[in-house]
Design a protein around this nucleic acid. Structure first.
Length: 405
RNA sequence: GCCGAGGUGGCAGAAUGGUUAAUGCGACGGACUGCAGAUCCGUUUCCUGGGGGUUCGAUUCCCUCCCUCGGCUCCA
């Protein structure tokens, strides 16, 4: 059975291809560390966690890389406000970020490189881009201008968006500093702002170069699977693709996965608008298993309107199923439900997830399984059936990261 | 302006041509309890946005209209 996922680049559902004989290379865009992570981050990283667990459960090893963007203007601003150096703030928030991910039961990436440790490689990418002759200076920064491409070559939808951002008169959002599709390669600046020596003197490399350099170092371009939140498509992943097309002749990744937003009060939750629910806030109200249950209930392509009361409901549901399973597994003379029920559940959950990460089918399935057990839990499972049931349930737990026993 | 998602019972949310349209929440009744909560049992007539079309048959496919919502500097 193959693992099919919706690919944002092609707009189609298809199997994940990878280089035979190698671990699957999964590169997930990590956070800019300047403030605590919110439940929108949690949702994105959670889906990638389930993707990773799915591959692993299928016997496919995964090499999971996540970058940590530890220098950036927003870090500078907040650090200045707090009287910290950019580095001190970034380290503090990075530690908090991983604490939050751990608390949610997310598997740690195999590698989580920091941007500031990748300067020489990013400088090399900048130099290679310059050799294409498509880099020009504007103000105190250098920009890469991609060549014209067929619209379908690189996120057709967002290319369209980019075009409208500058070509449409009276468009209702501010013009970017650059022309459509262009992106910054190098920014001149001096300490105390983050700065290093580069091809054009003292300064800081552009964000999009970071992922290209790291993915190239740890996985090779193109990677097998790449993604993040939907908001990263343009300009970030668009720009990564332009770099990869220019320097490698391929897209950045063979497959792109993007997760839909968490909305709060009808708007996208984001640090810049401040309408945030942090992962810590959420875990104070619901358990880790409950938060996973709640976040996984809609499929990754559906947006989620945040609701604390639904989180509470999800937490209660998860606990209830867990309690029913525990009572069932305590065993007895052998009730009407045997190990085959757990085995069916295991099979169905596997099929759900392999089919475009159908967590929206899986969660109700768990609920129904729990309800069936409640309905006929006494006298519990026959002793001889127990090991098989536990084995099946453990696989479901491993695939979802949700405790059931 | 451009792109996208969606309209199913009080709410959430399944069912991608086929019996009485799942399930959960809520509500109501009951059991238990000194009361409440938790838990368990039962009940919940009434729901597929409007209009066409395809079909023996449509929530499901096609057309059209209406409505709602999201995104488009940075951002998971």
């Amino acid at each position: 059975m193959s693992f099919r996922l919706f690919d944002t680049l092609t707009g189609r559902l298809g199997p994940i291809r990878r280089r035979a004989g190698r671990p699957l290379g999964m590169y997930v865009c990590g956070p800019t560390v300047y403030a605590p992570a919110h439940v929108g981050h949690a949702r994105t990283y959670l889906y990638f966690d389930v993707v990773r667990r799915t591959f692993q459960a299928e016997g496919i090893p995964v090499r999971h890389v996540m970058n940590i963007t530890d220098f950036e203007e927003k870090i500078d601003r907040r650090a200045a406000a707090l009287g910290l150096t950019w580095r001190a703030l970034a380290r503090r928030e990075e530690a908090g970020f991983f604490r939050d991910l751990d608390a949610l039961g997310l598997l740690r990436p195999n590698t989580a490189p920091r941007a500031s440790d990748f300067i020489p490689r990013m400088v090399r990418v900048a130099a290679r881009l310059e050799r294409t002759g498509r880099v020009h200076r504007s103000g105190d920064a250098w920009y890469y201008r991609p060549p014209e491409r067929p619209r379908e070559a690189n996120f057709p939808v967002s290319t369209e968006l980019a075009r409208h951002a500058v070509l449409e008169p009276g468009h209702p959002f501010p013009e970017s500093e650059a022309t459509a599709g262009e992106f910054m390669v190098w920014q001149e600046q001096e300490p105390p702002l983050p700065s290093w020596n580069g091809p054009w003197g003292r300064g800081m490399p552009g964000w999009h170069l970071e992922c290209y350099a790291m993915a190239g170092e740890y996985l090779g371009i193109p990677v097998d699977l790449h993604g993040g939140g939907l908001d990263l498509i343009y300009p970030h992943h668009h720009a990564e693709n332009e770099i990869a097309l220019a320097l490698n002749g391929t897209a950045f990744s063979r497959h792109f996965l993007h997760t839909a937003f968490v909305l709060q009060n009808g708007a996208k939750m984001s640090k810049s608008t401040g309408n945030l629910v942090s992962i810590r806030d959420a875990l104070a109200e619901g358990s880790a298993g409950g938060l996973r249950w709640y976040l996984l209930r809609p499929r990754f392509t559906e947006r989620l309107s945040w609701s604390f009361s639904e989180l509470a409901e999800a937490t209660a549901e998860q606990r209830r199923v867990q309690a029913a399973v525990r009572r069932w597994l305590e065993g007895g003379a052998g009730g009407p439900i045997g190990a085959s029920a757990a085995e069916s559940l295991r099979r169905e959950v596997r099929a759900d997830l392999l089919d475009n990460l159908g967590t929206d089918r899986t969660i109700p399935r768990l609920r129904e399984f729990g309800a069936r057990l409640e309905w006929a839990s006494h006298p519990g499972i026959a002793r001889g059936d127990r090991p098989a049931a536990v084995r099946a349930l453990r696989e479901v737990e491993d695939r979802l990261g949700i405790p059931l026993r």
